[in-house]
């Protein structure tokens, strides 16, 4: 029965979010911001992981500077496409580094009202009179918010992928998907989880938003943690390059994204811990 109840909470959360046009507004904003940032990128030489500098304004793109780490390497030995690599770097930077800032700020405020809204609409008393367990309700609300956000991000991911292909040209789709699924999604889910759970005790939308605002610096700290690690790994690639180990997309971004994913697991674990605290507190309060 608990599973059916949870599925119902998730389904109706999604339906209400859709009817409030919340998902449409949020998704539209994300997409516009991503396109705006991408379009604003100046046509300047692109630096790849401190390894080579590529001038993409020429056709074909040319290497204008090589650093000591790859001293003596020719373009052929680098084993990369000079078109693909800078474009991939651009979209990965957008997705894994710039976009999470927007996501963090938006979702912690946006989803904070998920549970308080039930109190404001005065439906909580009805729910409490049913055999719906606290854990099921909390879990349903959390999964509902995650589903709403996940679907929105999925649409943004696909739309931006198509638009970015038109704006910047070809990029590596696998790296693009990795950046979304291993960096953006888990980070966004963590921030949403924090927000839904931390604001669950608030009695009104207004108080929930205040709690969401308090969480913004916390979300920024999380962001700083994973983005610093991301760049540390990416920038370190240059020092490890040699003729025997050609520069590939996997070498450039793969490790950074997978290390970031490991960190994100810890972030998600913090949501699980917060869930247990909130659930235990609600049980104590009866």
């Amino acid at each position: 029965m608990a599973l059916s109840q949870m599925a119902a909470v998730v389904r109706y959360e999604l339906l209400m979010a859709w009817r409030r046009r919340a998902l449409l507004v949020m998704g539209g904003f994300f997409l516009l911001a991503l396109i705006g940032f991408t379009a604003m990128q100046p046509p300047a030489p692109v630096e790849l992981a401190g390894t080579v500098q590529v001038d993409t304004s020429t056709d074909p793109p040319t290497i204008i500077q090589e650093y000591s780490a790859v001293d003596g390497l020719t373009v052929e030995e680098l084993n990369i496409s000079l078109n693909l690599l800078p474009n991939t770097q651009l979209v990965v930077t957008m997705i894994a580094v710039i976009f999470p800032v927007l996501v963090a700020i938006t979702v912690v405020v946006f989803f904070a009202e998920s549970i308080p809204l039930d109190r404001q609409y005065r439906v909580r008393e009805l729910f409490d009179s049913t055999p719906l367990a606290n854990a099921t309700y909390l879990g349903g609300k959390l999964l509902g918010a995650w589903a709403a956000l996940g679907l929105t991000l999925l649409v943004v991911m696909i739309s931006f992928g198509i638009l970015a292909r038109l704006i910047v040209g070809a990029f590596d789709p696998l790296t693009y998907l990795q950046a979304w699924f291993l960096a953006v999604f888990p980070f966004a889910l963590t921030c949403t989880g924090w927000s839904v759970l931390a604001a669950s005790g608030a009695g009104s939308r207004r108080k929930a938003i205040m709690i969401g605002l308090v969480l913004v610096p916390g979300a920024m700290i999380l962001y700083a943690l994973f983005s610093i690690q991301f760049w540390a790994v990416v920038l370190d690639v240059g020092s490890r390059m040699s003729a025997d180990e050609p520069l590939t997309l996997t070498a450039l971004f793969g490790e950074a994204i997978s290390q970031s994913a490991v960190m994100q697991l810890w972030f998600l674990a913090s949501v699980a811990a917060l869930f247990l605290i909130v659930w235990a507190w609600s049980r104590v309060r009866g």
Binding site: M1, S4, Q5, A7, A8, V9, Y12, L15, M16, R19, R20, Y121, R122, V123, E125, L126, F127, S129, T130, P131, L132
Partner: peptide
Amino acid sequence: QLGYLPQDLGLYPNLNAYEFLDYMAILKG
């Protein structure tokens, strides 16, 4: 085994009656 109608009844404004009752029915098991 309970049916409850509070004094201060609240409903989700953007669900219809059928959806709201369906939601409550599932929560009631």
